[in-house]
């Protein structure tokens, strides 16, 4: 990140980054989407439990517990590659998705990386009448590599305890 960049300019640049990412996903350009991640990406989706208010520190399951997703670049690449096999039945015929991303908050870190938090609503329509609305937030760490932003860590927090969806075959 250029040190002289103003907070406003950084926010604008990252918002553009997230809008670009949403279009890549909704236009099913998954190979290009995969390039947005660093090689050491941790793509993490913990579970969310019902706990009493006084125990909210236990609401989100920590790294090391069973997660919904805890993927490295290789596993993400496998997910993307299988879509082109002609036999990835959960997504063939493919879902119709719409990713809406907003509420961006940006916090530069001492490492030169940037913490970026966004909220999302993702609508998925599949086959004839299946549909789902996924709501949640992403907690990302972004790294600037050769002038381009890359996602080095993504934590996805879904606003659900029991997922109401037949499967989770779309990317968030």
């Amino acid at each position: 990140m250029a040190p002289e960049m103003s907070a406003q300019a950084l926010w604008f640049e990252l918002m553009q980054f997230y809008i670009r990412e949403a279009w890549l996903l909704d236009e099913r350009k998954f190979t290009e989407w995969l390039d947005l991640f660093t090689d050491d990406i941790l793509y993490f989706m913990p579970r969310r439990k019902n706990v009493l208010r006084r125990e909210l520190h236990r609401e989100v399951t920590p790294l090391g517990d069973l997660a919904i997703l805890e993927e490295d670049k290789r596993y993400l690449a496998m997910r993307v590659a299988r879509l082109d096999s002609g036999m990835a039945w959960a997504e063939d015929p493919p879902s119709r998705t719409r990713h809406l991303v907003g509420n961006l908050e940006v916090t530069p870190l001492a490492t030169g990386e940037v913490k970026a938090r966004t909220a999302f609503l993702v609508y998925r329509s599949h086959l004839e009448t299946d549909s789902q609305l996924l709501s949640g937030c992403r907690d990302d760490v972004l790294r600037n590599i050769d002038g381009a932003w890359r996602i080095a860590r993504r934590t996805i927090l879904l606003d659900a305890n029991v997922l109401l969806d037949k499967n989770l075959s779309v990317f968030l």
Binding site: A67, I68, A90, L127, L163, N167, L168, S169
Partner: peptide, 16 residues
């Protein structure tokens, strides 16, 4: 967790 579960590489193809 990569193979099974709602997002499992294998399991997501079972549900339909």
């Amino acid at each position: 967790q990569a193979n099974n579960g709602a997002a499992g590489l294998f399991e997501q193809d079972d549900v339909d």
